[in-house]
Each structure stands twice: as C-alpha cells, then as structure tokens.
Amino acid sequence: MTIYIYLVRHAQGQHNVAADHTLRDPDLTALGIEQSTQLAISFPYHDRITHLISSPMRRTLRTCFYGFKNRGKGDDNGTRKPILALPELQELSTMPCDVGSSVAKLDAEFNTSEEKVVDLSELPDGWQLFKLDSNSLFAPNMDRLEKRAWQARRRLREIGQKYERDHPGQDAHIVVVSHGAFIHFLTGDWEGMTKEGQAGTDWRNAEWRVFEFVEGDEDEVRLRETEESWRRRKGDTPRLTETQQRELKTNVEKVLEEDKKEWKKVTVCFQE
C-alpha cells in the first residue's frame, strides 16, 4: 500500500506581514485564519485523511486546526484524532519568531478538559530551547537540519506503516503542516529556497503538495512529489535533475551560513 504525505505550509503569520522576527512564536493573522478556513473548503481529500501532524509552533498548529479540524476518517469508532505535534517539523532559525512555546503554554492554549485538540506527548520539556544549543540536533547547521529532516521522514513513515498494519489493504493519508524553509529540507527539493541572498521559500502560505516515499529507499527515507501534484502545479515543466538539485543545495548552504549572522542579531535569551 501507499503512504501519502500532504505537505502544507502554514497560513500567514503575524511575523510574515509585519516582517518582525522579534515576535515570539507568532500566531496567525486574520488573513491567515481566512486562508486556513479556505483550505478546509478547497482541499479535496478530507475524507481520505488518516492523520493530522504539525510542527509545534502556534501558526502551524492553528493552520492545522482551522484547515483540517474535524476532517478525515478519525479512529475506527468515529472519534477524531488530535493533531500530533512533532518537534522535528519546527522551522530553521533561532530568531524569536521561530522559537516555540513551552509544553505547558501549548497545552493551556489548545487543550481543555473536554477536548484534547493537540497531542503533545512527543514534545519533551524544554523542546523550544533545544535549537539555541549549538550542540543540539535542532541547531540550525546544515548537517543537523538534514539529520532532523531525515528523522522527521522516518517518523512519518513509521506512523504510516503502523496504520497500514492496523488497517490491511488501506493507504495512509497523512497531513503534515510545517514551515516553508524546513519543507525544503524535508523534501530534498531546493528549488525556490533562496531569493535575494536569503534563505526563504517559494511555498505560498497555506499551499499544499502531495508526496510519496521513494520505493526501495529504506535508509535515506526520501520523499518525492507525486506526478499528479507536480502536474497540477507545473504542467509539462520537467523536474530538476539531481545535478541541478545539488547545485541549488550548495547555494542554500552558503546562504544559510550568511543568514545565521543575521539571526544572531535578534536572537535573545528566552525565559519561560
């Protein structure tokens, strides 16, 4: 069977429109909420969804909440599963806008005694500050980012494989809401990541694309955009060659090192 990954970039965040990177874990703007609710209307595969997974940042969780809440198959008894928050899916930088909130704050904001909207079980205490440690897996170094992306892909595949074992003959359809820059690491597609000398993305707010795991690739755990998804976006435009992707990746690495100098100017010591 097949594991389908519906990758979604979060809707417009407050830092996107204000260009203010000092905002700590910003929420969605009014337009971002509108983009998310429109996603709930326009996304064509709600009835297929088996899992909702998100970066633990507020803007990604909120996008998932408004865009996919109460959608999909849910459990066998009809109960909707909560959104699983995976720390590996968080954004790259150490700027305040890309540093998350504590487990306690997220729990208080999203969950109630009546309803558990977000499953925070995979978030260790202090997860939001790990990236500020240069020795951490979450540090924004090229090798660490690639390893984090690999771990995220492996975890997504594990979740999909478990679903297939528990539901023989059925495909897994997993919604994953993350961040523009990190999605390039997650997919290994570097096209559109650098612009005007900065690391960014060509993914629009609330844009979604469909991916599958590359068959026979047990170690690398690579993702590839489905042909249908590619044609919907690009028509007959050919995909980039591996050589072209390697050249883009080299440029990304150079730009990332330059960007880190700017990040340090606005990175502060966080106190919860």
Rank of each mutant, 00 (worst) to 15 (best):
F211L: 01
A199G: 12
P26T: 03
E257G: 02
E257R: 09
I159M: 14
K234H: 15
R231V: 11
P96K: 04
T187I: 11
M193E: 00
K81T: 11
E207Y: 03
T112Q: 14
Q151E: 14
V118N: 00
T187H: 08
E114D: 15
D107S: 14
R233A: 15
K162T: 14
G126L: 08
G169M: 05
E272C: 10
T250R: 12
Q244P: 04
K264Q: 15
T241P: 06
E215I: 06
I183K: 00
P87G: 09
T60Q: 08
I183R: 02
R239E: 11
F130Q: 06
K195E: 06
V252A: 04
K264A: 15
T2Q: 13
V252M: 01
H167C: 07
Q38N: 14
L137K: 05
C269D: 15
V8S: 07
Q90K: 13
I49V: 13
G160V: 00
R239Q: 12
T201M: 07
Q198E: 13
T226S: 11
E164I: 13
F185D: 00
M142I: 14
D119I: 08
D166K: 08
F65S: 02
H15W: 08
W190L: 06
E253K: 03
D189P: 00
K261N: 11
I49T: 01
R153C: 07
T112K: 05
T63Q: 08
T250P: 00
Q271A: 10
A206L: 07
N111Q: 08
V17H: 05
V210D: 12
E247L: 08
R80T: 07
S136C: 05
D166A: 07
E109H: 14
A149P: 03
Y45S: 09
E207Q: 15
W263H: 04
R58D: 03
D143V: 14
D25A: 07
G216D: 09
N77C: 06
G32E: 01
H173D: 09
E164G: 00
K195D: 12
L84A: 02
R232T: 13
T50N: 01
M1N: 12
T94N: 14
L106S: 04
G216F: 03
T237L: 15
D189E: 14
E196W: 03
M57H: 08
P87N: 08
K254S: 10
E114H: 12
E262A: 15
R154V: 10
L223S: 01
F270L: 13
V117E: 12
E207P: 03
I49A: 04
R157H: 15
T63W: 02
K260V: 10
I159H: 06
W150I: 05
H173Q: 07
V177D: 01
A40K: 10
D217V: 10
W230G: 02
Y4H: 09
I33A: 13
V17W: 01
F65Q: 07
Q271V: 12
